[in-house]
Design a protein around this nucleic acid. Structure first.
Lengths: 166, 166
DNA sequence: TCAATTTAGTTTCAGATGAAACTAATTCCA
DNA sequence: TGGAATTAGTTTCATCTGAAACTAAATTGA
């Protein structure tokens, strides 16, 4: 593969290529994006078809399965999804009778969402698949590498969140 | 925040919650996804509006800027994007006169894509922004951390790619 | 030599997405 | 009080997305 002339253009244009062109394949934001997509798609394949479940729906099940009933708003906070995504995921889960929804009498804008037995069964079916997929991914790493990875992800996430709301 | 009862359901249903519910917030695939999205959106904000450019378009400019003219297919290989995405990004860049397209006479299915001066100017304008955004993100890490990060990303990417096409 | 297959790239279709507008309920405060 | 502002959640709209079907050109092989 030519790593040769790179960006060049008629000299008279006055515009010149950067002396040091950016190498996309070493650019950390790009690599993170490609990695996260590869991983996400691989894991999603485990449950999408088998359980007719989208990624946002799986996340909703995951937090309800772990923490018990809560409102859509609380789900937003625990899944890093915005309220539109959560609303749609919840709507679809309700249609499939995987959730119930009870308007709170204390504040009738809110509704408490809970897994039905059917929803719980889906959740219980996916958890081991998700765990083992994660384990297979991390097989590539030593115990220490895994510790480092967690630490680095946390540090970067904190930093990225700080930069995001500048 | 209740970390209390977690998934439970009418006992007579026969379905029980996993003894050890999955903790989404520690699940590596989830964390990678959230991190990559936070980073991507932050960086995209730098150029989306200012240059009226989408992420796929930026990737196309980035590889053409670095490697010089190539076909859409070669761009696919260098950007981890499928041909549909590349085709659309290229179409939009052509409309904006940021690229030229010359059908190859040797094989008239292919077309050689190249930056116009205008496209090169956009590329040259973004490169320093991208670099400095990456630098600010990585400020959180020590020199050694950065080395580790690159190594871990590479290892995970290789592993994820291997698992993806099982 | 020419029909079948492969390859490059585009278009179509059926969702998925987020921003912004919206509805309905609650809270705030003059 | 009661109108303004806030909050929970939904809908609308315009765009993005990937799978599959498609077009056109090149290659393969009987």
């Amino acid at each position: 593969m030519s790593s040769a002339p790179a960006a060049s253009v008629k000299p008279e244009s006055g515009i010149v290529a950067p002396a040091d062109p950016l190498e996309l394949e070493r650019f950390v934001p790009y690599r993170l994006s490609v990695l996260a997509n590869t991983v996400s798609r691989t894991i999603a394949r485990l449950y999408e078809e088998r359980f007719d479940l989208t990624v946002p729906e799986w996340r909703v099940l995951a937090v309800l399965g772990r923490f018990g009933p809560m409102t859509a708003n609380e789900i937003c906070g625990r899944t890093a999804m915005d309220k539109v995504r959560v609303s749609r995921a919840v709507a679809r889960l309700l249609r499939a009778r995987r959730l119930t929804r009870r308007v709170e009498s204390a504040d009738r804008r809110r509704a408490r969402l809970a897994l039905t037995p059917r929803g719980l069964a889906v959740y219980a079916g996916i958890v081991p698949l998700a765990r083992s997929a994660e384990a297979r991914l991390l097989e590539a790493l030593s115990v220490n590498d895994k510790r480092q990875l967690e630490r680095l992800i946390d540090a970067l996430q904190a930093r990225a969140a700080a930069l995001a709301d500048l």
